[in-house]
Design a protein around this nucleic acid. Structure first.
Lengths: 335, 335
DNA sequence: CTGAAAGCGCTAACAT
DNA sequence: ATGTTAGCGCTTTCAG
């Protein structure tokens, strides 16, 4: 038979033979409590299975210990990008070591203000914003009222007054394209990501820059939307336009995967006739035939960095405004 | 200029010239308040921009207005299944019309009790549990202490004392296999889902039953894990074992997609030589070549049903213990 | 280093 | 129909 009411701090205090204040201090890891007392209290907590009541805690401390993870309304589309799905894992992992709770906020597309109001309602200590596209301007102002960390440089951001975790997308693309260049490819096409997201634009820029630096023309461009089908369609268009292309750099493994499928479907050998390089290094890289050469991004670490930055921000520490995560080339069979 | 302290219920009461209780009643839409008073109070609330403090509310009412969405630790793997990613969308959508907040709880695999303690800690009004596999026994007992709704019949559940939203997986498989049968296929293999999840087992059962009913032997079985690569590997094994098979029923579109890739890779025409049927009807069905014939599940509605059931449960209404969502065959090119 | 006391902002009997 | 009165469980000065 289980108690209908969970044990309170008071019960722990009684059990440990100390005052509630002391238990509170132990729970909050206050440095000024005798190790012995800490031990006793900790034991009592364990025995009773005590869990602090968040509401009471919030009310008394005026901090919610909750942070929001704001994601776009179309969760299926969002999560279908393994990058985001994995970032969340990193966020959760890092948060697991703290007392912060993760609140999933699905941004309503037709009523963005509703989301904003909720975020500003004082129910959250901070927010993590993932997948910021051009229209989400409303979140920019949010940053003034609440600690906010963006995953990926937001579009339409004038200054450098935001906290953002990002990868060097331009650099990542350069690495991928250079790999292609170094194996002798000269007609290198690009399947770009969404042009309303920084990652899409920046990777495209990296491709363009690298070709320019090599004295090559950056004319073979088709936009996908980071998805497999988007990659397939883009590849079709590319092939129709330029049957002579000998390589394609896609802004995501999903698109690269779609591209290889189309290529093989048309009887074009990969990498024999056309080499393919993606970005991400996720499950798609290994479910493609052949396995993809790709520019890996550390997605779990990316999420962890977001969480870490936000927590430190909330706790008043000094944090870098921009944290750039490293990328690295993973060479497999496709290029 | 923003106030440093938000307006309290008390401030509203003063402004409206009534007691705090009355304001509280108005805020909570109590029926027994004079319309005139309601108007006055409402006006005061608007003028002051009053927003109730969640913490105080929770503490006093002992209801959190928060529900947990419990998902497995490996979020990347979890979300990579479009079914789950979409279910979440349904949950969020349905919850958007309520006052409930969605808290993402990532179940720690190495310390399942940590998760349980949190859930039991009285911080949540209820929980939604997705992807329940055999080892997650600990959540079963949870149902005794907190309103809980399972997405998909949990494994290792003795009775029918739980609330679950599910699809008729056996029936879904039957529909898929019968479609294959009706087009004359006789050597129908099955690529099963994880055998530690009800959906995997039940679909396998449906395949087996249908073949048995047709007087056919159900010997061509290989287990995948619901993923594309799992489907590829299973298909390879199947082909090695039985080069004469003329159809495969896969327990997910991801696996069906992997299977068609392997088939075509080996120069086997789909559906010419081997017909393929999947389950789900998600993005994979359309990124496969050819597009997949599949048994569709209503995933958004599934999520909405979970949310709806939980909310009603929390609010003390009478709800069905089992809600079965309908599936339907979607015929495309692969079979 | 520890305890006592005073709330945090709201809801919920209980009166009136 | 509205006001009064107690708390909800915890943190946080302030003493000691």
């Amino acid at each position: 038979m289980t108690d209908s009411t969970p044990p309170t701090l008071e019960a722990v205090a009684a059990r440990a033979g100390v005052s509630r204040s002391t238990v509170s201090r132990v729970v909050n890891a206050s440095p000024k409590v005798t190790p012995e007392v800490v031990a006793i209290v900790t034991a009592a907590i364990a025995e009773l299975g005590y869990v602090p009541n968040r509401a009471a805690r919030m009310l008394a401390s005026r901090r919610t210990q909750a942070i929001a993870l704001v994601i776009p309304e179309n969760t299926a589309l969002f999560f279908s990008d393994p990058f985001f799905a994995t970032v969340i894992q990193g966020v959760a992992m890092r948060l697991g070591r703290t007392e912060y709770t993760l609140s999933l906020v699905i941004a309503s597309e037709d009523d963005p203000d509703k989301t904003r109001r909720y975020l500003q309602g004082g129910n959250l200590d901070g927010a993590l914003i993932l997948s910021h596209h051009r229209n989400d301007r409303s979140y920019l102002s949010l940053a003034g009222e609440l600690p906010v960390v963006f995953g990926g440089r937001p579009m339409s951001n004038e200054g450098d007054d935001l906290y953002v975790i990002d990868v060097d997308n331009v650099g990542a693309a350069q690495v991928g394209v250079r790999h292609l260049l170094s194996s002798g490819r000269r007609r290198i096409a690009h399947i770009a990501g969404r042009t309303d997201m920084a990652a899409g634009i920046d990777r495209q820029q990296g491709w363009r820059d690298t070709l320019a630096a090599a004295g090559l023309e950056a004319d073979l461009l088709e936009v996908g939307d980071f998805t497999v089908t988007g990659g397939m369609a883009a590849m079709e268009r590319l092939l129709d336009r330029a049957p002579d292309l000998d390589a394609v750099f896609a802004a995501s493994d999903q698109m690269a995967s779609g591209a290889t499928t189309v290529l093989r479907e048309r009887g074009i050998a990969v990498p024999g006739q056309v080499a393919v390089v993606g970005v991400d290094d996720n499950a798609y890289a290994l479910s493609s035939i052949p396995h993809l050469t790709t520019v890996a991004q550390p997605s779990v670490e990316f999420g962890a960095a977001m969480a870490e930055t936000l927590v430190r921000l909330i706790e008043g520490e000094d944090v870098a405004r921009l944290t750039l995560m490293p990328t690295r080339l993973v060479v497999r069979e496709s290029a």
